[in-house]
Amino acid sequence: MTEEKKNAVIASFKPPRPSEWKSLQPEEDNEESEKRARQNQDELHNVLLSSLQMQHLVVLAGSGCSVGAGGPRMSDLWNEIVGANPEDDVREVIDNVGYDIKQENIEALLSRIEASLALNEDKALSAFLHNSKQKILNKCSGFLANEEKLEAHKTFVHRLSRRRARDQRLKIFTTNYDLCFESAAGALGIVVIDGFSFSYPRRFDPRFFDQDIVRRPRNGSESATYLEGVFLLYKLHGSVNWANKGNGNVVQEASPEPHEACLIYPAAGKYQQSFRQPHLELMAQYMASVREPNTCIIVTGFGFNDDHLSEPLMSAVNSNPHLRLIVVDPSAKERLVDGNEHWRRLGKLNEQGEDVWLISADFNQFAQLIPDLRSLSPADALVKAIRGVATAE
Rank of each mutant, 00 (worst) to 15 (best):
K5S: 09
A243F: 00
E114Q: 12
V230Y: 09
I136Y: 00
R324C: 00
Q55W: 08
Q272F: 10
L280G: 01
W357Y: 08
E107A: 04
F302I: 09
G195F: 02
A224L: 02
Q252N: 00
A261Q: 08
K235S: 02
Q41V: 07
L376R: 15
L109I: 03
D205E: 13
W357P: 04
I386R: 14
L44T: 02
P293G: 02
N244Q: 05
P378Y: 06
N294Q: 12
V356G: 11
Q277T: 12
R38E: 15
W21H: 03
L313I: 02
Y226G: 14
H259R: 12
A267E: 13
H279P: 07
D329A: 07
E87V: 03
V214T: 12
I101E: 14
R202A: 08
K35M: 13
K149H: 14
P86T: 02
R216V: 14
E393W: 08
A11M: 09
H153Q: 10
K384N: 13
E32V: 06
E151D: 14
L137M: 11
H279Q: 10
F302Y: 15
A108D: 08
P256S: 03
S116D: 13
V157K: 10
F128W: 07
F181K: 11
I326S: 06
G220C: 04
V58I: 15
Y234I: 11
S255D: 12
Y226H: 12
V251M: 02
F363T: 11
G142Q: 09
D194F: 00
M1L: 12
V157Q: 08
G301T: 09
V230R: 11
G220H: 14
E114C: 03
T391M: 10
V82I: 13
A152T: 11
Y99D: 08
Q252C: 02
L129T: 10
A243I: 02
Q368P: 01
G229K: 11
F363N: 10
I81C: 06
